[in-house]
Design a protein around this nucleic acid. Structure first.
Lengths: 151, 151
DNA sequence: CAAATCAGTGGGAAAAAGTGGGAATGAATG
DNA sequence: CATTCATTCCCACTTTTTCCCACTGATTTG
């Protein structure tokens, strides 16, 4: 499982050094093969080890092609899914189109989220975080799955 | 499986260089033989390896001939299906009629969608994408398959 | 505290991919 | 039958990508 928030930098070629504490696990799980795609609700990227992504892709592909909502999901997620391999120095290369999507400049945040990472532009991340903290969760109506949640 | 978004260019002769990472798989699957046809809901093209297309054509042909919707599907999809072969440099030639249908000019986007590709005019793709992202997914009624989807 | 190791960063060279043009082949027309 | 047009094939150039190595700063260990 991936955990924690890491400040990372993209160099001029768009390369990102994966923090070392994750490298071993990634190599173990997928031989260094990762997939990056776009997040639908926020302008950030999702990064999965290949086998974890393949499960998701399978779920997406089974959806009915003529359903517009399903089609949209497929186009956005599968359509942006890009193979990223760890290079000899443990870096991955984020392609320009994905960099652009998430407004990634030089400093970014790599957030461990269980089986995947999220990659945010640093400024974006900080602003969003402030927003989330401001909202009074209890004031909103919670879906039933959350009502029962004990943390 | 094909995935990812690729910026590609059509040269003055209407040729399109298939990104190399897909070539091997295409040759393997269909010896470089592809079929392009029109998408019904959007102004883009669908490109299948020959055997995958043949399955779809079979499904389409089995639809009831007297049903007008089925008839429309058959006419448009089978009617526009065109053979495209990878040439010696891994390029395919998009015929003028299909180019016109999808408003393809010089720069286009080739989108991997599992067993097929979608080919969009770049501007068109970008505009459509922004639209899809704007829509609040949760506000719509999701098909049951999607309700439970965990990504 | 000094030395050594390791993570992170940058740049340069080699390889590969993409692009364009031109020649050769084949089809169509007068 | 010859000429012209269009299509296909091939080659060469340019740009991009990938791989490799070297440097810096930080951290750990003797």
């Amino acid at each position: 499982m991936f955990r924690g928030a890491n400040k990372v930098t993209l160099d001029s070629k768009g390369r990102l050094a994966m923090p070392t504490r994750y490298r071993e696990r990634i190599v173990e799980r997928s031989n260094g093969r990762l997939i990056a795609t776009v997040d639908l609700s926020d302008r950030c990227l999702l990064i999965y080890p290949l086998p974890d992504w393949e499960e998701i892709e399978l779920k997406l592909r089974r959806l009915p092609t003529l359903n517009p909502v399903a089609r949209r999901l497929q186009r956005l997620m599968i359509g942006h899914a890009t193979d990223l391999d760890l290079d000899g120095s443990g870096r991955i290369l984020i392609p320009p189109s994905l960099r652009e999507y998430a407004s990634l400049t030089r400093t970014a945040m790599l957030i461990g989220q269980g089986s995947r990472f999220e990659l945010w532009d640093e400024t974006n991340w900080n602003e969003s975080r402030e927003q989330w903290l401001k909202v009074d969760e209890t004031a909103e109506t919670l879906p039933p799955e959350l009502e029962a949640l004990s943390l």
